[in-house]
């Protein structure tokens, strides 16, 4: 479904050369929920932008079989159009794909409903809290009807309470929609809680340190899953990998 082979990315410009990604290879199966974790600045956003086709890789191959692809960005405050009301923000990508007005309205209403925002159709994004804004961005991605959904640390800037809610929201959306989901985060607990597999990246020069399979039951919830002994083991495993990867860097 999604293959990344020997990907490397070097930023070169303004008299500064940064090797953001050294060599990354992994794939994600159809309908899989995969998380990518890595220390801050290791090139996670860069990876996502390459997969989304927003950035040309320096070398390597990326194949995404499945259209369309939706992206939820890290900076939720800047990814919604401030001059459009919530409804229009969700609707715009559908208008761009020449969908009938009637169908658009239905999809928008459904998407906003599913993220629990049925009552803010008419608000502007900046009138909403951070968590609500990110939910609008998620609704926009859902309404787009993607086969592949890419998310870049979508909950990095919301409070812990909201974050837990949004995590459960994403799990349920994934189960209902049947999408292939690549979820980027720097939070180890979050990656284990959400994903079926966790792709652990090393610090720069960035490689895949390990791929951990999360063999937790499909039904997860914040209380029982997080207090599960297996959960603790898995997070320790991921944590140890990241520490090792950090130490081995020159």
């Amino acid at each position: 479904m999604l293959h990344v082979e020997g990907l490397s990315k070097v930023y070169d410009g303004h008299g500064r050369r940064t090797e953001a990604i050294a060599d990354i290879t992994f794939s994600v199966a159809e309908f899989e929920f995969a998380c990518v974790v890595g220390p801050s600045g290791c090139g996670k956003t860069t990876l996502l932008r390459c997969i989304a086709g927003l950035l040309a890789p320096t070398s390597g191959r990326i194949t995404v079989s499945g259209e369309p692809v939706a992206v939820v960005f890290q900076e939720y405050g800047r990814s919604l159009f401030p001059w459009m009301r919530v409804r229009d923000n969700v609707e715009l990508p559908l208008r761009a794909s020449h969908m009938k007005a009637q169908r658009r309205r239905e999809l928008v209403a459904e998407a906003l409903e599913s993220v629990g925002l049925s009552d803010v159709h008419n608000a502007y994004p900046w009138q909403l809290s951070g968590g609500m804004q990110q939910r609008v961005a998620i609704a926009r991605a859902i309404a787009y009807g993607p086969r592949v959904l890419l998310m870049d640390e979508p909950f990095a800037a919301v409070d812990a309470q909201t974050r837990a809610e949004l995590e459960d929201l994403i799990r349920s959306v994934w189960q209902r929609l049947g999408v292939t989901l690549l979820f980027i985060t720097h939070d180890i607990d979050e990656s284990v809680y959400l994903g079926q597999r966790v792709i652990v990246l090393s610090a720069s020069p960035t490689r895949v340190a390990e791929i951990v399979t999360v063999d937790l039951p499909a039904e997860r919830d914040q209380l029982t899953t997080r207090s599960d002994a297996r959960f603790a083991e898995l997070r320790t495993q991921v944590y140890a990998q990241i520490q090792k990867a950090k130490r081995s860097t020159p």
Partner: peptide, 24 residues
């Protein structure tokens, strides 16, 4: 980020001009 949003959601051409560039 908004420019990236347009690109990833295939908002292009006149639509992009009208709903993004000119408004921004």
């Amino acid at each position: 980020v908004l420019a990236d949003t347009c690109r990833s959601y295939r908002i292009t051409g006149a639509m992009r001009l009208r709903h993004f560039v000119l408004r921004a």
